[in-house]
Nucleic acid binder design. Structure first.
Lengths: 201, 201, 201, 201
DNA sequence: GATGAATGAGTCTTCATTCAT
DNA sequence: AATGAATGAAGACTCATTCAT
């Protein structure tokens, strides 16, 4: 019966949807509660019946983003059997993002940058996210390689691929160009083949 | 009458000194003008006689930081002849930083994260800085390798080393641990040897 | 399912019980509806089915407090026959209160202080309470003295004893010490003996 | 050159003047910063350049009131030599107040009632004020009696007179009538004569 | 060059209350 | 009778900036 323009019926969903857009594009500090409520079409007090604080909303958003992000990542990866294809699937995810209007890099990293206290729960969320991505790299992307080498060597490989990935995201955000992604993908491929060939042992 | 060691004579220096500390540790948005003037001991109006705006102060700080940073980087690098030693000199610079109380990653990247408009002059400064670091990698660190390979291959090498470096900084900030630095250094070394051995041709 | 000792079955009772605690300890203005409903375990809308407004709740609480207070006072007084003992019974009631954690003086007086409009029904309730206490002093405490003196002298005695009592309560709250109670009790005793001896006639 | 309607040139004075009126008449909680700034004609931010918080303003007001109050009290007392006249001078001060539009009792007591935490600096101010009044009673009002009796007896007398005084103020506020003042003054006089006649030794 | 005072617009959050179910 | 959701108005306070001296 309710058909408002933002198309999401439940207020808390509309709030998160607005926060998602605004926190990601403008940053946490630069986005005020006023903007969030005006764009989500709820009253200020209504906002606070759904979220105890602005920070709590940020965390709700990050949790949702985490869920969807991991879901999308694993789904894309699972469409390939070959490890190399899986690695490149990770990067093509970013290719799509980077082309969107107003690319802003990794939402998690950006949020962490605005919470200087490393004990902040937001920082913990970001750490958890990054750790989970690392696990996806280990268990879903590179798992085929695990039996081929010593555990510490495998861990080293995982860390390398993962660091290349993160560095590329940052640099792509910084330069607003593709080459960091390309470069990291190429290096990742070479690294893979070297580890596979046993050159690193 | 006040002669503590950190008190600098000229107001504008004291302001930048305070901004340096506060912008880096707390972030740009989370640091108010009031805190800056109170910690630098100047009157509010005096601040605005030295800097036209908060953003201008941020830029002045970044320019100073850029200068000192490149200076320190090139100096450390120039103390070694061997390329491998030079690469490891880059990383040891971060080892020192990461151990300081309240490590906050790369000040430039963090600032860029708070200026969402990619056309902002602050963003330009950050891009310039990162580009300049890339040039240091190419001209001061890896220059010995340049004649050994095709230009595009050399560029690829530079990008790889540089991306590994940036990724490590981010992840060290995120996890507040050493391993990303270690991992990136190791991978850098291997990458070097592979490129040197011509395996990548 | 929740069966803690302080949980009362009927919602309106639980609400008054919470209000009693909170209004008394924190004051009327400083206590929000939210805290009252959260501590009484009822929904916000349920609160308003039982009480038309926050002020109405305050009045309900004061009425209950009035009832219990007078009841307790008269009961304590009635346990003694001697007028002096009865007077001291009034004060020992406060001795017990003053030793409780977070003594806050007279709940009625404190409420009156937060309702600046003297025409407010809350103010009327407080006036009624104080008048009733005065009547207890006249009819239950000092009644033995009434036939001994002219009516206006008796009224004077009643007012004196009662004012000493109220002054002591205020000062005990202010200084958080016993001496005002002690002092007022002593003076009350002396006053009694003087009036009895006819010195005041 | 500046002749604004509120006639006080300096903003901080205008703010305290407004606060004085509003805090006293409406109470602390019921008076918002917005009302204070609108009635004193300063911008919100200007308020906060003069006072760090609402509570700090309340304290500034109480300090000013304390000063003026003690000043006025001692001056009135000093106009009489006879102890009985001095005591009655204390009470006539209240007679004047009580007749003003919107009598609200003792500003200090009312403030204390709104700060439930007895460790609050406001509470400390109120305690200090009341203690100072007690000292005025001892040193300026009853000092003539001091050599006539044992120290503890004198203290007892002081406490009694002072408690009668405070009780009268509260009750006058409560009933909005004169009789508590009359009654307390009469009792004070009798108490004086009894102590003087040595009846209490 | 330096400064204390002033400011409009904004910050996040809470208020007591009402509505639809 | 009970409730989860919604709200306009107000709460205290901070923002980066400007002005008169």
């Amino acid at each position: 019966m309710t058909h408002n323009p933002s198309s999401l019926s439940r207020p808390s969903e509309r709030i998160i949807e607005a926060a998602s857009r605004l926190f990601f594009r403008q940053g946490y500090c630069s986005t005020g509660i006023n903007q969030i409520i005006s764009e989500s079409g709820v009253a200020k007090a209504s906002f606070y019946t759904h979220f105890p604080s602005k920070e709590a909303l940020a965390m709700a958003w990050l949790r949702q983003r985490e869920e969807r992000w991991i879901e999308q990542l694993t789904e894309r990866i699972s469409q390939h059997q070959l490890t190399e294809k899986r690695v490149s699937a990770m990067y093509t995810m970013w290719y799509d993002q980077i082309r969107e209007e107003g690319y802003r890099g990794c939402g998690f990293i950006n949020m962490a940058g605005e919470f200087s206290d490393e004990k902040s729960p937001v920082r913990a969320l970001v750490r958890d996210h990054k750790e989970r991505v690392r696990q996806v790299v280990a268990n879903n992307v590179l798992n085929e390689y695990r039996p081929m080498m010593e555990p510490e060597v495998f861990d080293e490989l995982v860390n390398t691929i993962y660091s290349l990935f993160d560095g590329a995201i940052i640099q792509a955000q910084n330069f607003m160009q593709d080459w960091p992604i390309d470069s990291a993908m190429k290096t990742s491929m070479k690294t893979l083949s070297h580890y596979r060939s046993g050159a690193v042992l």
